[in-house]
Design a protein around this nucleic acid. Structure first.
Lengths: 330, 330
DNA sequence: TTGTACGCGTTATCAA
DNA sequence: TTGATAACGCGTACAA
């Protein structure tokens, strides 16, 4: 592949002039610049990225470490990140941690090694990973979940949204409200559970212990829902902590011949295009995932740009979308 | 950040020895190797990726250029790619082309500039992009859509799957079968349309011109479905070319008070977790997206490994999953 | 305004 | 087995 000296030779100038011309420095004779441009074009010259990165001691690459691209919540985040990054001339390397601390750590190592300009991380839990990055002065922004040691963070008010959702269920007349949340120890799972409990209390409802922890997936939720609903005194409503899980819950309802809304109130985190297609339509807590991604990327780019201000935490608002699955009369 | 010479100084050896020790060359005294490892550990040393890439004239990075990560079909592909790449020690940079040739071209430029080891591309259409890569000897694998100039490709038999889906509708007693497909000129859209026409013919049904082209999104499909169904002689069944579009179609059915299956048979490309939650459950043509990704990555890695064999095209099979939305009696 | 020459951090070659 | 040294391709300080 053609190098800068090939271009220089062809244009009859020095490599320095080529570099200057191609990088748009003003201090270059227009005629020479034209010759250089022509030569570069003819040779199909592309600056060698690694060489340039080495020389400049910086890259235009962001690492985005999330649990799973197949989760619509995270794909929306990643789309927000990508759009902002791309507009600023940055590339994004995407990493699936599968919520596995070891995998997360591994990707952080790669990010460090490749000298990425910054990292967007949805932390699996209590990490020493954060310290790792800080020690190497690589800017980092936490998404969706806080970073143990602090730092720039973009969150959603999961807890209060869960509380509101619980209150909404209570207002609709449900009295035995249960909750399916994620693995205990995972911040979002815990926040939603706490919000749920606050909601029960605020509504004056007793906590009947109708709670199950499971991984954030349909299969686990299916089992958990089955357990809860097979009890002697089953819940008459469920707050479900994410989109994948509610699929399992609704399947289980179907198997048991129960109808969402009428028999069991259902509300879940994360809206989806298909939520309105269900019968009854699914009530949800809609999270601004795309905005989280784009805001996080903006924060990160500011740091990369040299901002040394205090760490900021931005908390975005989820909002409740009431549909038929939380109406008894449905 | 610590460099290799820092480590060398601390361990009291030369940089060459450090390099050898850290890269596990056998020709290094165990005791020295231990000293090096200790020094590297104490300094928190990470080899400088760009420097190494420059020196080795190769990177362990794959570029994946798809139209949109928010499309579940492509996220499944990207997950397949990522898993295989990661297992082989490669990173993946993810790019959303939005089916815009200009954006695709831009990303190809970046990929070339960063000297990625290879590219996985879902081509927007008739490209000169392929030629670009070939000219620079960067291995490329086309996913889901063929590359104009040929080359390694992983496809799905969209066309025959569409034909089967059409035959299935005909067998179920539908006689005025329409088709909503993607933009004309896009290979998958055209293949599905052609398959649909073959299906009509094989079933002995007249082609009534019940075809609409739209972008692969819900909004376009909504308008198109409305147009078709508002006709004097509307279709009694629809073959829909993807998952996002069928959301628009089903919404439109709902607005018009029509029931899938009973009033209008519906079958769409791409299965989804929520397809069975609908009433009636949605019949689909299920595509092996994850496998496409992982197979594509394997093909690419083989090329990167130096395989100079003939270009291969692998065509995977989609399969029909009949559910309630293609049953008149539902 | 242009050119020469150095160094970014590694790995690979060659002698020792 | 080890060390000195030369690249890899680029950007930039300095000299012209």
């Amino acid at each position: 592949m053609a190098t800068i000296s090939d271009v220089a030779a062809r244009a009859g100038v020095s490599t320095a002039t080529v570099s200057r011309a191609l990088n748009g420095k003003s201090t270059v004779d227009p005629e020479l610049a034209a010759r250089v441009a022509a030569a570069a074009d003819e040779l199909g010259y592309r600056p060698n990225g690694p060489a340039r990165n080495l020389r400049k001691q910086e890259t235009a690459v962001l690492a985005l470490i999330i649990s799973d691209v197949e989760n619509p919540f995270f794909t929306a985040i990643s789309r927000g990140v990508e759009d902002v990054a791309h507009a600023a001339g940055f590339s994004v390397v995407l990493c699936n941690s599968d919520d596995d601390p070891a995998k997360e750590r591994e990707y952080l190592d790669v990010a460090l090694q490749e000298r990425v300009a910054g990292v967007l991380l949805s932390p699996t839990g209590r990490e020493e990973g954060a310290a790792l990055l800080r020690a190497h002065a690589t800017p980092i922004v936490a998404l969706d979940r806080p970073l143990p040691g602090g730092g720039d963070t973009v969150l959603v008010n999961s807890g209060s949204a869960a509380k509101n959702a619980t209150l909404h269920l209570a207002e609709q007349g449900y009295v035995r409200i249960g909750c399916l949340t994620g693995p205990s120890g995972m911040p979002t799972a815990d926040a939603r559970l706490n919000g749920y409990r606050e909601g029960l209390e605020a509504a004056g409802l007793a906590d009947l212990g109708l709670v199950r922890h499971t991984e954030f997936r349909a299969a686990g939720a299916r089992r958990a829902a089955r357990q809860l609903l097979d009890q002697d005194e089953p819940p008459d409503a469920l707050l479900v902590a994410n989109n994948a899980m509610v699929v399992g819950v609704l399947e289980t309802l179907g198997e048991l011949g129960l109808r969402a809304g009428r028999d069991v109130g259902v509300i879940a985190f994360d809206d989806a295009p298909w939520a309105t297609l269900l019968d009854p339509p699914l009530s949800v807590v809609s999270q601004p995932a795309y905005d989280m991604g784009s805001l996080g990327a903006q924060l990160l780019l500011r740091r990369i740009g040299g901002d040394r201000g205090e760490p900021t935490t931005r908390t975005l608002s989820a909002h409740l979308v009431a549909r038929g699955s939380t109406e008894r009369s449905t």
